[in-house]
Amino acid sequence: MSGPASIGVDAGSTTFKAVLVDREGRILASFLEPADPRLEEQAARALDALQAPPGTPVGATGYGRRRIHAARTLTEITCHARGAFSRTGEPGILVDVGGQDTKVVRVGPGGAVLDFSMNDKCAAGTGRFLEVILARLRIPKEEIARYAARSTRPVPVTSTCTVFAESEVVSLVARGEAVEDIVKGLHAALASRVASLVGQVPPGSRVFMSGGVALNPAMVEALSKELSVPVSVVPDPQLVGALGAALSALS
């Protein structure tokens, strides 16, 4: 009785995500690939992979949403709020650190968007910041948290501009600072930038994190520290937007 009911597609700037859900919004199957410029082909591939019955309604979100043949298109902000609410069941502040955008959404009862803010046009407060610099330090993604955990004395990284921070990191390495301490410092720098987007957290508010960067426990910890409140990760953080899109196609 809870068979496939709708599909959600999140055609983001760095990754393409799709989910198949049942009436209750439970994820039955999912699909995740780096974003492909041939979006239509990627969408077809995703539908195949999800093995959805023909005629299943599709909801789409993300930068490429208009190129997806969908019954409903909505922005990532609305979809993340709905997706997150369906997994957590709680209003609160949702922080989505994506590859190109960082969004802070105040989610109200029922998953409504009360208000939101986004980073300005540079990569300073986004996942790209860490990606670029950690690649420079030749640290594989899966090692990041371990590096940060080993730090005993984080080195402050003052530049929040990605380009400036990259050269700052190079000079920190040249100065002989431990890579672990630099990694930890980078997390703190990004967390501080994201925190300025979050603003004051009202007492008693829950803070949730979604998006690919939420899979990095060091980042979750850094943000918790910066905001002085515990930050919880929405289950399957990368799929939250796609889930919200699927839920929108249901209604």
Binding site: T160, C161, E168
Partner: peptide, 9 residues
């Protein structure tokens, strides 16, 4: 504001 300063540059 030191945040827009690039020591290297």
């Amino acid at each position: 504001d030191p945040r827009s300063w690039s020591e290297e540059q």
